[in-house]
């Protein structure tokens, strides 16, 4: 059994290599969460609209993205976006677009379940007081759907944060990359991978504990 040696670790290592990647991972997670929930909600509304073309488009979008590995989606966008806009695009920006589009497919399934969990009577009540479809959705259905689905949306976001490590495929500088580069520089890859695992674990485990607590609170409100 080999010894590990964390003696080389210092604030300079952390601030020089890891913080930069950590910030990008957080940015990517937040951007994809906000954009993904917005786009995902729109897709969910399309699928529940009952209008055939809208249902088909949304279903195609969601099912296609859900049947391809995320790594392949990342590679696809990194290949296609430069062809479409006619100039190269950085790995970081490409990752943000990819994750937003990809996560929307998953968030839309959660939002669809959330909207369906709101009793039909709520919709009729909205129409009965003279609201339009848009108003009913915006003022009555969606707020309840969001609240019911909040724990699931947050759990999906924790998965999203873990998945951001896959930008490795296109070489973007994220949290994992930060640890890897530091490990290469100091010739201590084993220690740095262990630290990476510990860091992800602490973040994801604490967040999932918080989500669990929130879930209990929401159950009481219901």
């Amino acid at each position: 059994m080999l010894e590990t040696d964390f003696g080389f670790l210092s604030w300079n290592v952390v601030s020089g290599f890891i913080i930069k990647g950590f910030i990008f991972s957080i940015q990517l997670t937040l951007a994809a969460m906000i954009g993904g929930i917005a786009l995902g909600t729109a897709l969910a509304l399309m699928r529940l609209s009952g209008k055939k073309p809208l249902v088909l488009v949304a279903a195609f979008y969601v099912n296609t993205l859900r049947s391809i590995p995320l790594v392949m989606v990342i590679l696809w966008f990194f290949l296609l976006i430069p062809l479409l806009i006619g100039r190269p695009m950085g790995a970081e920006l490409s990752a943000i677009i990819t994750f937003t589009v990809f996560e929307a497919a998953y968030y839309s399934e959660i939002m669809r379940a959330g909207i369906q969990s709101v009793p039909k009577g709520q919709v009729y009540a909205g129409y009965a007081v003279g609201m339009t479809y848009g108003q009913t959705m915006q003022l009555i259905v969606l707020p309840q759907a969001f609240r019911n689905m909040l724990p699931v949306l947050l759990t999906q976001t924790i998965i999203l944060f873990q998945d951001t490590s896959l930008v490795y495929a296109i070489g973007a500088y994220d949290l994992l990359k930060g640890f890897e580069v530091a490990g290469k520089n100091f010739n201590r890859p084993v220690e740095m991978y262990l630290l990476a695992a510990a860091t992800y674990f602490v973040i994801c485990f604490s967040l999932s504990m918080l989500v669990r607590r929130l879930q209990k609170k929401i159950q009481i409100i219901r």
């Binding site: 998945d163 490590s165 490795y168 994992l176 991978y193 674990f201 994801c204 485990f205 999932s208």
Partner: peptide
């Protein structure tokens, strides 16, 4: 469950 697959 709380460590990304790639890191594992």
């Amino acid at each position: 469950r709380n460590i990304p697959l790639l890191v594992q």
